[in-house]
Each structure stands twice: as C-alpha cells, then as structure tokens.
C-alpha cells in the first residue's frame, strides 16, 4: 500500500522514451527481441533501436494487416516481436489479425499501441485510439496493459520479455507526471493501489491516474477519504480489487481516456453488478461518449470531463456532498 502525492505542477514526460530505452536495454541481452512497425520508426521512437539493431527492426511499410500477421509469424518462429504502431491503426485496421493471429492463435506478440487515447488531439477521431479497450477486452487470452507513467511503461516491457504472451500495451505520448517510483514492477492482472482511502474508490487508468490522485488530494482537504486504484492491467481484470472497493468503500468512480462502451468502467460495473453477496455501490463512469470535436489533448480531456476537478465533482455527487 503506497500513498503517492503528485503535485499538479510536477514535471511531465512522454512514455515513449522510456519504452524505447527499455526495449533497447532488453534487446542487448536477449537476441530474440525484435520490433515491427508500419513506417512509424520515428513516431514509435524506434530510431535508436534501428541504429543499434538494423536487422531486428522490420518495417513493413504502411500495411497494418500484414504488420500484425508478420508479428504472429515472428513469434511462431520463436522470436519476441514488439509490433509498434499508432494505436488507432494498430487496433482498428488490424483487429481481425489481432483476434485470429494473436489472441486466438496464442502467438506471443507484444502489440504496442503508440500515442493512444486522444494523444493526437487536433488530428481528430480518425487518429484517436479510444475504442481499443472495448475492442480488445472482447478477445480472450490477450493481456491489456495501460502504464500510467514511464516507470510503469518500462515494467510492462520487462514483463513482456520475461514472460512472453499475447499482450497489448498502451504506450502514452501525452505527457504525464511520474506516479510511481523508478524501477517499479507491475504484477500481471493486478491494479496498483496508488492511494488508500475508505469513503470511495477512484479506479483510473493511464493518463487519468495522476488526475485521480490530484482529485483524491483535494477531496482529502474536504474530509473525504478516496482510495485510488491504478488499473495498470485491464485484462486480466483485478476482480478482487474491484470487489474490495465495492465492499470496503461507499462508491466507485472510474476514469479512462477511452470510450465508455465496453471500457474500464464497463468492466468494473460488470463485476460490481454481479457481486455474490448482492452488495451495491453507486458508480460513475467517466470517459468518452461520442467522437471528439477539434481540440488539443488537454482541451479534449477537459471537454469530456476527465480532469481532476471533474473527478472530484463526481465524487461529491455520488456521495451526496455536492
């Protein structure tokens, strides 16, 4: 149990740098680590990887279906492929390949959704990856990892090499503050307790974790004790942590930079709604409900009610303290 304090003016970082540095470090000691991309050497931060391991970066060009199939084939040959592409194209264009070639075939491919969520801001919904949770949660046998900062991104990469299995990792581009210690580990299928609390639980993922912590800090000043769970893994889902939150605290709020139809909130609600002892807690699910209008990532997170203030307001509302 750790209580993390993240200041709203803390420095922020792009997780892709940590991703690339960790991948290179692992590739130096494990010659089975290879990368595959779709003309995204730069945007996937693979330039240094390519320079050091030119034969082990397979750039298939702008051909995402083939890219995922090639990843499955590399795994079939015995390698550990990290398939890197902008989230929307990786998951949207290649969804059937992810289903058939990776999840159903159980080929140990590490799918790296770069710049997920609304990281591409003004480029619009074609370039946003906010459906990935909904689409990929429906695929049995595929892990979904959503690191909340650079250290967790490194942990996700280490986990993938140490225990290769079909996995999707969101590799964030929108700058976020550190919410965990350097060299932190991530336990497969477990939420991270980012802050203890007893009045309600905020379950946040990715970019929303630091915001949930800010919200918890401001709620504490009002006498409200908020537990914050970092949903670092969406699949396998930490059902025990959700059940504990429902039984031990009075309400649950979820926050995700994703569409709410089938995402984190829906996953949590599905567990809460089926508790064996019939326990019931009020919930609020924060996320996207329509395609984004034009705006920067920060603007859109505000637009969709995904700031710390929105989370605090939802807490007050659900606890009837508004």
């Amino acid at each position: 149990m750790t209580t993390t304090t993240v200041l709203t003016d803390a420095p922020t970082f792009d997780n892709r740098q940590d991703f690339a540095d960790e991948l290179i470090a692992l590739a130096r000691t494990n010659d089975k680590v290879v990368a595959v991309c779709n003309d995204s050497v730069g945007s996937s931060n693979l330039t240094k990887f390519r320079d050091e391991f030119p034969d082990r970066l397979i750039n298939v060009g702008i051909a995402e279906q083939n890219m995922v199939g090639v990843g499955a084939g590399l795994a079939n040959a015995g390698l550990i492929p990290f398939v890197c592409a902008a989230g929307p194209f990786l998951t949207g264009r290649s969804l059937e390949q992810i289903k058939a070639d990776v999840a159903y075939s159980q080929h140990n491919v590490i799918l790296c959704g770069m710049s997920p969520g609304m990281a591409y801001g003004e480029l619009g919904p074609t370039h946003h990856s906010v459906e990935d949770f909904s689409w990929l949660r429906a695929l049995p046998g595929l892990d979904i990892v959503v690191p909340a900062d650079g250290a967790q991104t490194r942990a996700a990469v280490r986990n993938a090499v140490a225990d290769p299995r079909p996995t999707y990792i969101r590799v964030g581009r929108f700058k976020v503050p550190h919410v965990s210690e350097d060299n932190v580990g991530l336990e497969r299928g477990k939420f991270v307790v980012a802050r203890e609390g007893s009045d309600l639980t905020i379950i946040a993922t990715g970019t929303e974790v630091s915001r949930a912590l800010w919200a918890a800090a401001s709620l504490a000043a009002e006498g409200v004790s908020a537990r914050v769970l970092n949903a670092a893994y969406l699949s396998p889902l930490d059902e025990d942590a959700i059940k504990d939150a429902a039984r031990q605290t009075g309400a649950i709020i979820t926050a995700e930079e994703a569409n709410v139809a089938g995402g984190l909130g829906a996953a949590v609600a599905s567990v809460v709604g089926q508790l064996e002892d019939g326990a019931r807690v009020p919930m609020r699910i924060l996320g996207l409900k329509h395609f984004a209008p034009t705006g920067s990532t920060a603007f859109l997170l505000d637009h969709f009610g995904l700031t710390a203030d929105h989370i605090s307001a939802a807490a007050r509302e659900v606890l009837h303290r508004d």
């Binding site: 995922v68 199939g69 084939g73 590399l74 079939n76 040959a77 492929p81 390949q97 070639d101």
Partner: peptide, 20 residues
C-alpha cells in the same frame, strides 16, 4: 502453425515466420 479461417491471414504470418 497458426489459426486460419478468415481469408488473407496465412500469407502474412508465413512472411513473418520466414523473416524469423
């Protein structure tokens, strides 16, 4: 070697296997 059924999947996987 790989699960097929939806068409157009085997050849990309074969290409990846050959690269590997």
């Amino acid at each position: 070697e790989t699960n097929t059924g939806p068409l157009g999947h085997g050849l990309p996987v074969a290409v990846g296997t050959a690269i590997g």
